[in-house]
């Protein structure tokens, strides 16, 4: 893998060029709420040693609300107006390894029995410039779900911080190589020995549970009493799902756009909401929060793995850090693991 060196000031210049050529450069915002499109290259933030943002960057490939089409009423019929695709690359700058795999993981469900053109159109334009991660706290568990905080997996280009002002830049994919080609003037020759040294210093969080155990156990113990109280303190908000880099459920609604025009919208939805599985008959197969929380765990560690051979979790810890009632997903999965081991 080719490796180069880029200074912080050159990274700012590179970002300036990208913005000028019409790229959407997406960075973590200053106060750590989420990610935003930056207009000024000075706003870049490569967060490799601080707490991750509250909300992941998935909204730039899977927006929280997005028009699918517009319709305009004529006298007897409706005119459908298709939305035009946007040009230009979407560059995620400074994605930690627990973020950089997000698009790749979600792609599997959005290209399963139906190819979701809205997601794909954006995913194809994505360039992920990842960064090795030197942060960990009590909520991080990337290593548990097989993500290495020092790994370039999921990134097209990968930054390894060498000191305050210098990064090694690994050119990971063909897409990344093509993308960086016009900007070689900002790069100098790499020193793999130095970057190896920096990567060797990264010690990820300890493993907290075995996802394969959790997967296997849920499959055979769906009605186990452990699930009777699993969501007893969950208040049923969507913080966990909306902050998550890989939760991908959505709802479709029609709404008015102007007096004569309407639009069909694709909006984020979350399995912890009571309305999520409410049937029009009034029946709700997941009638309480325990069943909804079981679904959250099962979808992340069993169903998605069964179907796509991928854990629907990157161990970023956002759901636990932000949970208003302090439910820690790794702790819950750990309890399941414990029960599974007793059998």
């Amino acid at each position: 893998m080719e490796e180069k060196i880029i200074s912080y000031s050159n990274l700012v210049s590179l970002t300036g060029d990208l913005i000028k050529t019409g790229c959407m450069v997406i960075c973590e915002d200053k106060n750590g709420t989420g990610w935003k499109r930056i207009e000024n290259p000075d706003e870049i933030k490569i967060n490799h040693k601080e707490i991750p943002s509250n909300i992941s960057y998935k909204e730039f490939v899977f927006p929280k609300t997005e028009p699918v089409f517009y319709f305009k009423s004529k006298k007897e019929d409706y005119d459908l107006i298709e939305k035009n695709a946007q040009p230009g690359k979407i560059v995620f700058l400074g994605a930690k390894p627990c973020d950089s795999r997000s698009v790749e993981i979600m792609s599997k469900v959005f290209n399963w029995d139906y190819k979701d053109e809205f997601f794909n159109e954006k995913a194809e334009r994505t360039i992920v410039i990842g960064t090795a991660c030197n942060y960990k706290d009590e909520f991080c568990f990337c290593t548990t779900v097989n993500i290495d905080p020092a790994s370039e997996k999921g990134s097209d280009l990968f930054l390894i911080p060498l000191d305050e002002n210098t990064y090694a830049l690994k050119i990971v994919t063909g897409k990344g190589k093509e993308f960086i080609q016009p900007y070689l003037k900002y790069l100098s020759d790499g020193n793999p020995a130095k970057s190896q040294e920096a990567l060797a210093k990264i010690k990820g969080p300890d493993k907290k549970f075995e996802p394969s155990k959790v997967r296997e156990w849920i499959g055979n113990n769906f009605e186990h009493k452990l699930f009777d109280n699993i969501g007893s303190t969950c208040v049923g908000c969507g913080q966990c799902a909306f902050a998550c880099p890989v939760c991908h459920c959505f709802d479709i609604v029609d709404e008015e756009c102007s007096y004569e025009c309407g639009r069909r919208m694709k909006n984020w939805d979350a399995c912890q909401f009571g309305l999520f599985t409410l049937h029009s008959s009034g029946h709700n197969p997941r009638e309480n929060q325990n069943k909804r929380y079981r679904q959250r765990i099962a979808h992340k560690f069993k169903y998605y793995t069964d179907k796509f051979d991928e854990i629907l979790c990157t161990g970023c810890g956002r759901c636990s850090r932000g949970c208003p009632v302090q439910i820690d997903i790794a702790q819950v999965a750990g309890e399941i693991n414990l029960v599974a081991n007793q059998v």
Binding site: K64, C237, G238, F242, W268, A270, P324
Partner: peptide, 12 residues
Amino acid sequence: EKCVKCYACRQT
């Protein structure tokens, strides 16, 4: 504009 409609405000 930042609101994601997670309804955590309502639920708590």
